[in-house]
């Protein structure tokens, strides 16, 4: 019998993710297929989950499987070790986050945690959501600090706290146009648009993993009804409706979310997810990426962006030119200014 293919493993991953996120029991056909998986098949499934940065959720799903589904010992141990590491990383990141947030508040600033760490709180078990770094939003970047920052091409400040990568962003939304229609920060609507547009940004550049999609699915479930009702108006005003049609169709098809918009084919997004997940972007520590030769980073970004032009033309046409401009000017500025600067002290 042929082994499990990566494509088949991805298909199998969705009901397992629904099991761990919502407690949805596996359909009978999936249960039967899971029963027949051997050690090599589980290796493939784990590899796909790792690529999609959802290993913690896979562990949780496996732990919840009915007792009559036998899991190879090696698989259990592998997943247990991975879950252990993910939890240890979460504890490190949470501790570092507290230190940095306290420091920023003591300076009279009002930091807002965004992306990864803020998403973790939505999960049934936050400690099993893979996070690599901390993203903080500050409309005005800090001016007094003993810290040694590096400036990224997108203008964000990067530093480390106890080995954890921290990025401070002065921009909350990954969008360049019609920003006057975006909701005020912080708000549930703003949080949705931030998460959604961040996924879109990745879909048009470095690639999207299921972890980010899980974030969106969980957030949509907990959003207040009045926020859900008001968001389509914001989608229209910001010209992101086409993107949201795709995203919600994907969430409906694979996460069984109630779609507030009309259904379209979710294949374009599935294709991006299937072909590489997070492209290893999130598995590469930021500090190593920043240390890589500059031309490699820039060539990599440019290549990925060009690869996604057909997708961008369909789902985010207004973002193409501003993104090219941002990538070009951001990288040129970055190339001609010091890579790091110490702010005061």
């Amino acid at each position: 019998m042929a082994g499990l293919s990566p494509d088949r493993a991805l298909t199998l991953l969705f009901p397992l993710l629904r099991l761990s996120l919502w407690g949805t029991p596996l359909p009978d056909a999936v249960k039967q297929e899971t029963r027949l998986l051997n050690e090599s098949d589980w290796e493939v499934l784990i590899s796909v989950a790792k690529n999609q940065s959802v290993t913690g959720l896979l562990f949780q799903a496996v732990d919840s499987l009915p007792e009559d589904i036998e899991i190879p010992d090696k698989t259990l141990v592998q997943l247990a070790v991975m879950a252990d590491r993910i939890e240890a990383s979460y504890r490190r990141i949470s501790t570092a986050s507290e230190i940095v947030l306290t420091e920023l508040r003591n300076e009279g600033l009002n930091p807002v945690v965004m992306k990864g760490l803020s998403c973790a709180s939505w999960y049934p078990r936050p400690e099993l959501r893979q996070s690599g770094d901390i993203d903080i939003y500050l409309p005005k970047l800090p001016t007094k600090s003993g810290r040694h920052f590096q400036t990224s091409p997108d203008g964000s400040l990067h530093f480390q706290q106890d080995g954890v990568d921290i990025d401070i962003h002065s921009r909350y939304f990954d969008i360049h146009h019609h920003t006057e229609y975006l909701p005020s920060v912080p708000s549930p609507e703003a949080e949705w648009m931030m998460i959604s547009l961040h996924i879109l940004k990745h879909a048009t550049t470095s690639g999207v993993g299921l972890r980010q999609i899980c974030d969106a699915a969980l957030l949509w479930k907990i959003l207040p009804d009045n926020s859900k009702a008001s968001l389509p108006i914001i989608f229209k005003a910001t010209h992101t409706m086409r993107w949201h049609l795709l995203l919600f169709s994907f969430l409906e098809d694979y996460f069984h979310i109630q779609n507030p918009l009309r259904h379209i084919s979710s294949k374009p997004l599935l294709s991006i997810i299937a072909h590489g997940g997070n492209f290893g972007h999130h598995s590469t520590s930021r500090s190593r990426l920043l240390k890589a030769p500059s031309f490699i980073r820039k060539a990599d970004t440019a290549f990925r962006f060009l690869l996604r032009i057909p997708f961008s033309l369909r789902f985010a046409p207004r973002e193409i030119l501003p993104t090219i401009k941002e990538l070009t000017t951001g990288n040129l500025q970055h190339a001609f200014t010091a890579d790091s600067h110490s702010i005061l002290h």
């Binding site: 562990f59 496996v62 732990d63 499987l65 007792e67 899991i71 259990l76 141990v77 997943l79 247990a80 070790v81 879950a83 252990d84 240890a88």
Partner: peptide, 25 residues
Amino acid sequence: CSLRKVRGRNLLIVPDPCSGNPDRI
């Protein structure tokens, strides 16, 4: 060292002190 319960089984994970990778399970 950390203890993890999975599918009713208790796994004690003891990392290698140098690499941090699991040394014994």
